[in-house]
Design a protein around this nucleic acid. Sequence first.
DNA 1: CGTTAATTTGATCATCTTCAACATGAGTGG
DNA 2: CCACTCATGTTGAAGATGATCAAATTAACG
Lengths: 251, 251
Amino acid sequence: MSVDSVINLPQVRLSCRDCSLAELCLPRGLDAQDLERFEAVVGQKPPLQSGELAYHAGDASHALYAVKSGSLKIVMSALDGEEQIIGFSMPGELFGFDGIQNGHTCTAVALERTNICELPLDSISEISKEIPSLNRELYKVMAHEISLDQSMLLLLARRNAEDRLAAFLLSLSQRFANRGFSEVDFTLSMSRHDIANYLGLAAETVSRLFSRLADGGLLAVNGRKIKIHNLQGLRQRVGDCLGGATSATAG
Amino acid sequence: MSVDSVINLPQVRLSCRDCSLAELCLPRGLDAQDLERFEAVVGQKPPLQSGELAYHAGDASHALYAVKSGSLKIVMSALDGEEQIIGFSMPGELFGFDGIQNGHTCTAVALERTNICELPLDSISEISKEIPSLNRELYKVMAHEISLDQSMLLLLARRNAEDRLAAFLLSLSQRFANRGFSEVDFTLSMSRHDIANYLGLAAETVSRLFSRLADGGLLAVNGRKIKIHNLQGLRQRVGDCLGGATSATAG
DNA sequence: CGTTAATTTGATCATCTTCAACATGAGTGG
DNA sequence: CCACTCATGTTGAAGATGATCAAATTAACG
């Protein structure tokens, strides 16, 4: 799972140029010169242990974050204590968009040992004035986030449990593939309970659906280890549901 | 319902300064001088009749839009033809954020006779370089859109049918109030079918829920005319669900 | 005023939730 | 190395919520 490409010293400046995720991350649109200026404002946070928070709902939001290794869940809490997982963030993905206005509306929880880069909003805002392509890229990333959330609305409102899980697995598969990992053979970093919450289902239902998909020969499940045997079949089962939904940036 | 404050000539330049919705709309953060520059790039489209489109999924996206009067639904289509209403846009609200990147992912349909202002992306991008407060405001509006979509995810994933409808009505009530209309007495511009689609329910269920809420004495329903008798009670019924969810900008 | 669309209401059915019991597995301490 | 515990996951059975099908009623509009 580890995608670290640098030694993880807390708070060191780090080079996006040397980062294996640069093609997926915010600076993907920048030329060498602008990239250098961009790097100068990027900080690295100490690694998060599983269960630790990158930020908490209610915190003032002073930065965006990029996942360098590991993964997180982005959780929105209702006033009555009910929680909803809004998305999962994987290496190369940005998170922290929730409540750029009035402080965070979500909490970001590491699902495993996780390294993140910090992009202070002030600095970003400052340099994006002078780097139009960065400004454009930021808009794009936010518009993308909107599209993903909206695809997720369609999934929750119109699809049954099995379609939702299949779409979720396909999304993960796609995201692993984009990062150079196997698209048919991966390990989930989130619990059944987290998957269920994300998909608006009960954990028991998710468990049953995994069994059913496995019985159907589409995939093999061993705890959190997934082997997709029939990617094409899985795609067909999802139907033509989604135009690529289920989160690639979140928060 | 009509909030027109100028005569509706197609494509005329119009004054945001004279618009009764200025406080709700994008230019709310601008001083007099910047407002003038902003106005210069705003165009007005010919009024849309009920059922007409502001844009269609697949169209290149070359503008953001603001509702001047009337209302629209923002609809996302899955490849298999299934449709999901992502939000409803009311006067003073912006829409058209879907697919700023690769063309629109949604279709915007007028629910009644509707006037909209057009903010060409090129011009916006141009002048926002020179008006930092406009740039900031744009980010805020998009971040707000993300928060709303995410609150909607919580609503769809975790709340039952009655809570969803109550939350929807409260959201409308709030938005009418913000626009100077009664918060307890208003007319829906969307059909039961549209409401049901938006809330991930069947139209029959929505109809039954209206009856049930009316039987409970919380409100009176007469077709699309709603009279809320017990706003506080409605709020309690929704519980502490939402931090203000259910769409104020969409698309 | 007649025709069509929208809405309401009823009855039945399916999906998914809930409750409960059991299995598995990692981690701890004897 | 094994027993114990707590967390996580699986499976079964019953029940509830909301969907679907069907029919009746009302509203909208030319």
